[in-house]
């Protein structure tokens, strides 16, 4: 009972931080008192936060390292942008179209996650990581060579070269390495905010449920979990598919913020970037993921005054933080102060 209360408090704090950030930023955006750079970054930040939450579900809660998470983002980005373009006439309201695009993207990414999960989740540890990396690269290659057109006879798909045979008035949606162009920029900060809240709600509900406890039992000791009758593959798959769906929705949000999107945007480096957010924020710590994703997306922009040196500084900060957080002396110092705080929380 005690434990549930503690979780509940932390979950509430996470929601409070996200809502407070929105409540402060949204009026400022409406009033126009936010710099153009920050305003342009709000939606990508939301997308990265959702990505970090999604990956934290896989790495922190499920305990499997995924190095190909950008692949799901890619599937979501392409599915979402395609949906938004296809529904441009049918659905007039932009927010509704955004919601539909995000939902379609989540479904597609979940489907891909399921298909990839069948082979991937049979493996363990570093081998699982390398296979997710491989799938990420395969997805990138496929989207780089995919041609998808839409005319009044429906969708036309071809791989490698443009053999779609579109009618005159048809529209080429995905043009191989050129990606998708002329995307309606319907993504909004509010939409991103709602997506983050949804992701948080799903994760917290999952973690506090019977299924979530089974997933975490598998993470802590797979053999022990199996021996008490937990169907390991089923629960691993469940967490993986949910994570993929979130990544898909985040990808759709990301793509609908730009007028063009190409497959190479979602490469290995993007997967790594998201992983950095998750590890920085702390495994299994959702508030940490939210803050780390937002801070590390802004950091390179904030360092813009250092122009060429900014990525160098970013790298140094990354290394130093990892060294500092894993330093035994520092850990001991923090360990001395933290129990006091914990004691205070328990007595309150």
């Amino acid at each position: 009972m005690m434990n549930r209360n503690k979780n509940f408090g932390r979950n509430l704090l996470t929601f409070a931080v996200v809502i407070a950030a929105y409540a402060i930023l949204q009026p400022m955006v409406l009033a126009g008192s936010v710099s153009a750079t920050l305003k342009g970054m709000l939606v990508p930040i939301c997308a990265y936060v959702a990505m970090a939450l999604s990956l934290n579900l896989t790495v922190g809660v499920l305990g499997e390292l995924s190095l190909g998470h950008a692949g799901f983002m890619s599937v979501g980005a392409f599915a979402g942008a395609t949906t938004a373009i296809a529904l441009q006439q049918a659905v007039a309201s932009a927010p509704l179209r955004l919601a539909i695009a995000l939902a379609v993207a989540a479904v597609f990414a979940a489907l891909v996650g399921f298909l990839i999960g069948i082979p991937v989740l049979r493996l363990n540890g570093d081998y699982l990581a390398i296979v997710t990396l491989a799938f990420g690269e395969i997805i990138k290659s496929i989207f780089n060579n995919l041609y998808l057109g839409l005319d009044d006879r429906g969708f036309h798909v071809s791989l490698l070269e443009d053999r779609t045979g579109l009618a005159e008035e048809g529209r080429m949606i995905i043009a191989g390495p050129m990606g998708i162009g002329n995307i309606p920029k319907i993504a909004s900060f509010t939409g991103g905010f709602i997506l983050i809240l949804l992701c948080l709600a799903v994760i917290f509900n999952l973690v506090n449920s019977r299924q979530g406890r089974a997933v975490m039992a598998i993470r802590d000791n797979r053999i022990a979990a199996e021996s008490v009758g937990i169907p390991v593959t089923k629960y691993k798959m469940m967490a993986f598919v949910i994570s993929a769906a979130m990544a898909g929705a985040a990808g759709a949000l990301f793509s609908l913020n730009y007028s063009t999107v190409v497959a190479n945007k979602f490469d290995f480096n993007t997967s790594i970037l998201i992983l950095v957010f998750v590890v920085f924020g702390g495994l299994g710590n959702m508030l940490g993921s939210v803050i780390a994703a937002a801070a590390l997306t802004i950091l390179p922009e904030a360092l813009r005054s250092f122009s060429n040196y900014r990525m160098l500084i970013y790298a140094i900060v990354l290394i130093l933080v990892m060294l500092a957080t894993n330093n035994p002396t520092l850990k001991m110092l923090i360990g001395r102060t933290i129990p006091k705080r914990k004691g205070a929380a328990e007595s309150a």
Partner: peptide, 16 residues
């Protein structure tokens, strides 16, 4: 995982 992220940091550092 901490070592992995540090290695990635080193990789960024060398590239930049």
């Amino acid at each position: 995982l901490a070592v992995l992220i540090t290695a990635i940091g080193v990789s960024y550092f060398l590239q930049n």
